[in-house]
């Protein structure tokens, strides 16, 4: 038994070392895309997960032996997580929090923007982050809408503009298009040629849109009674393709 354990340990150790060498091949890896309401995200060789009061970092360079390398207790009521390059954008009930994952095993808080209590998915790129805040009895009293932050200085996200939206939920962007789900209004399509001043182009009604994923030329939408697919080859003009019923 002891021998077996030792052997196992040696094999694991070899496994870890072999990954160490291969970490550069990460670029060739094949990772999927989640919706904006997720609490799980994969960046490089780590899964980052949030629960209400914790961020977890789990090393998955060897999927046969995932290892939790970090868990920090925080008190932000965290709701969603979004990875962009070496950053994590975390939406919480009290604000937007930006973490650096330069040290992949231990996310470090580098910036925050507090807001009124609400629910809060977030997406971002190098210069801008978009959040939707949904004030409700569950989430808190903040004004519901789209909140646009300048995040060029990650330490100090600047609120540029807010656009009132009735019961906004998930959101996603691709190129110069921003898509926002609104339970009350439908799928809102914005032009973000000027990133800080989204311009509404159209609102697609008919479904209770909850979350979405722009995926290649397809917009995958989680709607009340199923999944709806739209062709977004023309980014600002989604064309309905298919509705898959629950």
């Amino acid at each position: 038994m002891r021998l077996l354990k030792s052997l196992y340990f040696i094999v694991c150790t070899i496994g870890l070392f072999s990954c160490e060498k291969n970490s550069d091949s990460n670029a060739a890896s094949n990772t999927g895309v989640g919706g904006s309401l997720t609490k799980f995200t994969i960046s490089g060789n780590h899964i980052y997960a949030v629960s209400s009061h914790y961020i977890y970092a789990i090393n998955i360079s060897d999927p046969a032996h995932p290892v939790r390398v970090g868990q920090s207790a925080l008190n932000f009521d965290m709701e969603t997580i979004y990875a962009y390059r070496n950053r994590l954008f975390i939406g919480s009930k009290t604000g937007l929090y930006i973490y650096s994952i330069d040290t992949a095993s231990s996310p470090r808080l580098i910036g925050e923007a507090k807001h009124g209590r609400s629910c809060d998915p977030v997406i971002a790129n190098d210069s801008v982050s978009y959040s939707t805040l949904k004030g409700s009895t569950f989430c808190g009293p903040a004004t519901s809408g789209l909140y646009v932050y300048d995040v060029k200085n990650l330490n100090l996200p600047l609120l540029k503009t807010t656009i009132p939206i009735n019961e906004p939920l998930g959101l996603g962007m691709v190129d110069s298009a921003l898509y926002v789900c609104s339970a009350g209004e439908g799928l809102k399509v914005y032009s973000i040629k000027n990133a800080y001043e989204p311009v509404i182009r159209q609102t697609i009604s008919g479904y209770a849109f909850t979350d979405l994923i722009p995926y290649n030329n397809i917009l995958i939408c989680w709607v009340g009674d199923g999944i709806a697919l739209y062709d977004i080859s023309s980014r600002l003009q989604p064309v309905f393709i298919k509705h898959i019923l629950n």
Binding site: S29, N30, T31, G32, G34, T38, K39, F40, T41, I42, I47, A49, I58, I60, P63, P66
Partner: peptide, 18 residues
């Protein structure tokens, strides 16, 4: 409640397990 996929390995939670 959660899911992510990398290199044909699906990561999810079963209660508090990964």
């Amino acid at each position: 409640s959660q899911v992510s996929v990398k290199d044909n390995k699906l990561y999810t939670n079963s209660y508090d397990d990964l």
